[in-house]
Nucleic acid binder design. Structure first.
Lengths: 171, 171
DNA sequence: AATTGACAGTTCGTTTTTAGAACTGTATGG
DNA sequence: CCATACAGTTCTAAAAACGAACTGTCAATT
């Protein structure tokens, strides 16, 4: 499978993975949420090779996740800042962080705590149903093919186990 | 940076990425939530090379995300099923799917819709504060170093931009 | 005037990962 | 006896990532 093909798949998860589903992109995005904006900032914070960093930034810009904005002329310099599309990845980041907080902490405990300004309390992120507000459990969610579905397309929960005979990934 | 080092970093996001932050693992997990359990099922659904699939499954089992359970003797055969730790990745998956639904759909619309059994409606997942129930915005979240923090450790929002001088990634 | 340093990349040779295809081995069905 | 299902393993070629050095512009020093 070529990775570019992921974006064509009739599966929103696959498409998202095609954009941000590699380790460096996710780490770069973490830095973005941490207010890092410049090439050197990303490079020194992550230890990524400059070559890869340049490539990943280009891709994220191309995908509309980051915007490249000049912050000085003379030697033209740019900053990379999150677009709304990028900011919308916040729930993804929080979900990843929370899972790590729950399952990957060492004896010392969480590396950091989150405070919700609105209520002033330390909190955990919880994923709920937009309609009734109840926390979501995989078992309580049923999926239906949407308008963009294709016959053998992938869904999140439920759906046949793709019983063997499929010659390749469903298209 | 060696990828194994990610799990040691004082950052829950990095640790999570160390476990599930590569494309194939995420796709394998998608299949798990789709009720795929067997080697051939994963292979034919994803088109992943058998070699890599074996490796990724091994890693996910080692990490406690999947459990390898015998379902027949004679030729010993096993199924891979999600542990609780694995099931807890549901919010991550939903967050990824929802981002794709929002930003990566084509003209035809979403590949699939989600129905919440509890309320019977089609829904979107929303990430809220566990304390007050309000939707989370990056701007409204402030982070504090937790017990497992280290001086130059990474946080999610807020925190200095890791101002240049850092020789490598913070450890 | 020449040097150094910050910044944002690019280039290039080496190492590591992945892809792709074939092969191993047990067992059932015909 | 042969084909097929299943779950891997092995091997080589191709692709991606690493590491280190290099390019180029400009400001501030020496």
């Amino acid at each position: 499978m070529k990775w570019d093909a992921l974006e064509e798949e009739p599966c929103s998860l696959a498409r998202t993975i095609g954009v941000i589903g590699d380790r460096w992109s996710l780490l770069i995005l973490r830095e973005c949420f941490l207010r890092t904006r410049r090439f050197e900032g990303f490079q020194s914070a992550l230890g990524i090779t400059r070559h890869l960093l340049a490539e990943r930034l280009k891709k994220l810009v191309r995908q509309g996740v980051l915007r490249r904005i000049p912050y000085q002329e003379s030697p033209k310099r740019h900053e990379y800042i999150l677009t709304q599309k990028g900011l919308d990845l916040y729930p993804v980041m929080m979900a990843l962080v929370h899972w790590g907080d729950t399952h990957m902490v060492d004896e010392r405990g969480r590396p950091l705590l989150h405070e919700h300004r609105k209520c002033g309390k330390m909190f955990d992120p919880v994923m709920v149903c937009s309609e009734c507000g109840e926390p979501l459990l995989a078992k309580e969610v049923h999926t239906h093919p949407g308008p963009g579905a294709r016959p053998a397309s992938a869904k999140l929960p439920a759906g046949k186990p793709a019983k063997a005979k499929t010659p390749k990934h469903a298209t």
